[in-house]
Computed example of a mutant assay.
Amino acid sequence: MPALPTNQESAVHIDHQQIWETYTSAWKADNVDDKRALLGASLADACTYQDPLASTSGWGELMAYMANFHQQVPGGHFATRRFRYHNGQSVAQWDMLNAQGQVIGDGVSVGRYNEAGRLVTVTGFFDT
C-alpha cells in the first residue's frame, strides 16, 4: 500500500522562483499596465521595498521608483544569477543590465513571502 502524503506534500506547490522572476520582470516592463499586472502576480498588496537609495510602501511608490530607475537607466533590467528559497524567504543574486544586455552592476536581494506565495518585503543590497 502506498504511503499517505504528509500535509506538506499535499499542499499546493508554489514556485517561489517563478514568483521572483515575475517580480523582476516588472522592473523591465515599459508600460504601467504591464508593470501593474506583473506586480499583481508577484507582490502582496501591502508590500514594502528597500535598498540603499529608497524605501517604498505599496505598489504605487514602488512603481514610481521603477519609473525613476528607467529615467536614469533607459532599458535597464535585472537578470537573476542564483536563487535560493526556504521557509518563506529567498535570496537572489542578480546582475543589473543596460538596454543592450551589458552588465552594469550587481547585487543581492532578500524576499519574504506570504502564505499565498506573494512577496511581502524585498530588500536589495548593492554598491551605490
Rank of each mutant, 00 (worst) to 15 (best):
V108H: 02
W20S: 12
R36Y: 01
G40M: 05
P2G: 07
A29E: 03
H86E: 14
A79Q: 15
V73C: 05
H86Q: 13
M63W: 01
P2C: 02
A41H: 11
R84H: 07
T48S: 15
K35M: 14
D30C: 11
E115G: 12
S42K: 06
Q18L: 09
D106C: 05
G111P: 02
D51L: 07
Q93T: 06
A44M: 03
T128M: 05
A116E: 11
Q89F: 09
P52Q: 04
L38M: 12
R118L: 14
A99D: 10
D45G: 13
D106Y: 03
F78G: 07
N87E: 14
H16G: 08
N31K: 13
G75Q: 05
R84M: 12
G88D: 07
N114V: 09
H16E: 08
L53R: 10
R81G: 08
A116V: 03
L119D: 02
W20Y: 08
D34T: 15
E21S: 14
D51Y: 03
S55Q: 14
A116N: 12
Y23N: 06
Q8A: 15
A11F: 00
F78N: 06
H77Q: 07
S42Y: 01
F126P: 10
Q100R: 11
E115T: 14
R118Y: 04
G105V: 02
N98I: 00
G88P: 07
A44N: 10
F69Y: 04
W27R: 13
R36Q: 13
D95K: 03
T24M: 14
V120M: 09
Q71C: 02
T48G: 15
C47T: 04
Y23G: 06
G40L: 04
A116M: 08
A29F: 08
F126T: 01
N68D: 08
I104K: 04
D127Q: 14
R118D: 05
H77V: 04
D51M: 07
Q50D: 08
I19Y: 00
A26D: 06
Q50K: 14
C47E: 04
G105N: 09
Y23K: 01
A37Y: 00
G124C: 11
R84C: 05
R112A: 09
G58T: 05
F125G: 09
S90E: 01
G117Q: 03
F83M: 06
E9K: 15
G107L: 06
S90K: 01
V12I: 09
Y49R: 03
V110H: 07
Q71D: 07
I19Q: 10
L119S: 08
Q100A: 15
N87Q: 13
G40I: 03
S10T: 10
S90T: 03
Y113G: 04
A29M: 10
Q71S: 07
H86P: 00
G60R: 12
G88L: 02
A116T: 07
G107N: 05
F69I: 10
Y85N: 09
W27G: 12
Q18D: 13
V12Y: 00
H70F: 00
A67C: 03
T123I: 05
Q50W: 02
G111R: 02
